[in-house]
């Protein structure tokens, strides 16, 4: 790791100012991606701005319309929240399957969505449930937020403060992990939302995407059989030593089927 200047501001405004002022500043929430990257010397930021001192970014609020999770809320806390489990059980289950226990104890929802790793779990939930990302400057619909591989709508100095998920009548997430890293090789989040069924896929492509054909099939009939024969084209999907694009495409259908079955 190269050395850097460390800041721990107490407010979002101070954090935004600190990162803007730095010549090459980086925000850090849980650090679960940033620190390994720094250790490998694949980045050389001048300044690291730790959001851990901003206490009002932590917390979970649940009401009749949905769940709002503060950006610095840890995965483990979402997973173990009885309120989340009651309102959107699939969300709690997803959070409980991110990384490993130690990653969940440090990693945060804000960090995960801002990083937008192509194999991250949360983006699938945000897109499938039609969540809204709130930043220090605005509110962004999940679909407008995730732009591509590691790419989001966030501007320099813009900081995710919370994510709001509307409830869904049915929802489930099924992940096929990479056997080595345990990241999602394919993860499919299905939800029966107020605006109809939504199917969001992570891990398979460069970034989270929806599968319209499955959504249409589910609109006709919410059943595992409805998606069982919907094939996703392999073209454009990720390929690596663990899974070809064809295998990933196949797994999208299998995981979708299982997710629908699990959602009931």
């Amino acid at each position: 790791m190269y050395d850097f200047a460390y800041h721990k501001p107490k407010s979002v405004a101070d954090a935004a100012a600190a990162v803007k002022k730095a010549s090459d500043g980086k925000l850090m929430s849980g650090g679960m991606t940033l620190i390994p990257t720094l250790k490998q010397r694949l980045a050389h930021p001048s300044d690291v701005v730790d959001l851990a001192g901003v206490s009002d970014l932590v917390g979970i609020k649940v009401d009749a319309t949905g769940v709002t999770i503060g950006a610095m809320t840890k995965h483990a806390d979402v997973a173990s929240s009885a309120d989340v489990a009651r309102a959107i059980p699939a969300l709690a289950a997803l959070a409980g399957g991110i990384g490993d226990r130690q990653v969940r104890n440090r990693g945060t929802i804000g960090g995960s969505v801002a990083n937008n790793d192509p194999a991250a779990d949360y983006p699938a939930a945000l897109v499938a449930l039609g969540a809204t990302v709130t930043t220090n400057e605005r509110k962004i619909a999940a679909e407008d937020f995730f732009k591509g591989m590691f790419e989001t709508a966030l501007k320099d100095g813009e900081i995710v403060t919370s994510v709001s998920f509307p409830t869904a009548t049915k929802a489930a997430y099924m992940k096929f992990p990479n056997p080595a890293s345990r990241y999602a090789m394919v993860g499919v989040f299905v939800a029966q939302t107020a605006s109809g069924p939504r199917v969001a896929v992570t891990g398979a492509g460069p970034a989270v995407f929806r599968v319209k054909a499955m959504e249409e099939a589910l609109a006709k009939s919410w059943s595992a059989d409805a998606v069982a024969n919907v094939k996703v084209p392999a073209e454009g999907l990720n390929s690596d030593i663990h899974a070809s694009a064809e295998y990933r495409a196949h797994l999208v259908t299998v995981m979708a089927k299982r997710a629908v079955a699990a959602a009931g």
Binding site: A180, S181, I241
Partner: peptide, 18 residues
């Protein structure tokens, strides 16, 4: 796993060596 063309070790961490 080595890349046959370049000889790069593709399974060079616990991210890829199971």
């Amino acid at each position: 796993a080595y890349d046959n063309a370049t000889g790069q070790l593709l399974s060079g961490s616990y991210m890829d060596y199971t």
